Simulated assay, not measured.
Amino acid sequence: MSDLNAKKRWMYETMVLIREYEDFLAMAYFEDKLPPKIQKGLAFDIGAGPIPGEMHLSAGQEAAAVGVCAHLTKDDSVWGSHRSHHFAIAKGVDLDRMTAEIFGKVTGLCRGKGGHMHLFDLAVHYACTGIVGGGIPHACGAALAAKMRGEKSVAVAEFGDGAANEGSFHESLNYAGLWKLPVIFICQDNNYGISVAKSDSTAVESNALSRAAGYNMPGVQIDENDPLAMFEAFATAVDRARRGEGPTLIEMKVFRYYGHFQGDPETYRPKGEIETIREQDPIPNTAEKLMAEGILTTEQIAEISQKAKDRVMQAFTFAKESAYPDASETFQHVFTD
């Protein structure tokens, strides 16, 4: 199998793993949050269950992550957002430890103290933050460090279209364009900033085509939710960054199959929207393309699906069987006065 075909297969396998993980997590999250509490008049208790707090899932956005990470090395860094499981998995974050972190267990990436929005894996140079747009300046810092050291590594900032209206976005792009930093900005346009449609919050139709030029960098618009399209666009951007020619802004149309958070009533969505966007699911669409190219068979697709299910079950079993941190750790590994 050629290197390109191997990468195409890896992208498909990883998308399947991400989707299986997010769909399983979507169910696991609701444990003890619904019935029998509904009978007591509480339809949803966000603080209950083994995974308390908010949960933001990336199902439907897998193509952006695999198209990017197929080009990255271990030394390249990814700086994620509050909806970042897809990039974490594609970058190679330890799935067992990531799941344990989500469950608040001591075996987690941050010993259970960060949760799903604050994952950190130094081994593969990945981190994310719950602050909208908060990871974008960090990516610029990593890129500046690489440039000052004379290294060829690049930094990737991934975020949603809502973050493109944050000051951190504009300040970071200005800084990156001025200093020609080896950073690539990945804006995933899922059409919503929480519950507000992009058309109601953003003055331009395309961040990539309208805003990139103002910060002296190329802007690339990808209109289809296709990993191969992202793979091709990112290849140009990462080569440019490694040559020392500066940043690129890529904006890709993706879909958010779940709400802004689990438990979101999604009353802002037009009727039938979910059904419509699921018809454009990148996973079966990619499977069809790879079968047509002779890269995958129907038997291999079934094997990939089962392998993903088994891996996800292993991660969740590891997390559930792990211990919680001891109370004596309360003030360890945190900033205090």
Rank of each mutant, 00 (worst) to 15 (best):
F318S: 02
L181D: 04
M291F: 05
E288Q: 11
H118Q: 13
L109G: 01
H260P: 15
H82W: 13
P35T: 15
V78E: 03
N207Y: 09
G160A: 09
Y324P: 00
F335L: 15
I102F: 10
R240I: 04
V124N: 03
V16T: 11
A157G: 03
L17K: 02
A100W: 10
I194C: 04
N5K: 14
P284A: 07
Q39M: 14
A176Q: 03
H125C: 15
T317K: 05
R111F: 14
A100S: 12
F24W: 14
L144D: 00
I131H: 00
P36D: 04
L173T: 11
Q221K: 15
L72P: 08
F103A: 10
A48F: 09
V334E: 02
A123Q: 13
R243C: 07
Y175S: 02
D310V: 01
I89S: 09
E54V: 15
E101R: 10
H85G: 12
E151C: 00
Y29W: 13
D32P: 00
T73G: 14
I283S: 11
A208R: 07
M148C: 08
I38P: 04
E62N: 04
K198L: 09
L290D: 03
I184K: 02
A123F: 00
A142E: 07
G67L: 01
A197E: 12
I250W: 05
T336S: 14
P227L: 01
T286R: 06
A70G: 07
L109W: 10
G92M: 10
P270H: 04
Y324Q: 05
F255K: 07
A48R: 09
H138Q: 15
M148R: 14
A100N: 10
E273N: 03
V132F: 07
S322V: 05
K147Y: 03
Y29L: 09
V66P: 10
F24H: 15
T298M: 13
E151L: 10
I51N: 02
N191E: 14
E321A: 08
D96Y: 04
C110H: 11
F185V: 02
A127K: 14
T267R: 08
D76T: 01
V312L: 01
R243H: 06
D94K: 02
P35C: 15
G114W: 06
R149L: 12
K147L: 09
P265C: 07
M230Q: 04
K33Y: 12
E101F: 14
P50R: 05
Q306I: 03
D75W: 02
P137G: 08
T248R: 08
S328F: 03
A26I: 04
C140E: 07
A212W: 08
L209I: 11
I283M: 10
D223Y: 13
G246H: 00
T286N: 06
P35G: 14
D75P: 00
D326T: 13
S322F: 04
A237Y: 00
G219I: 09
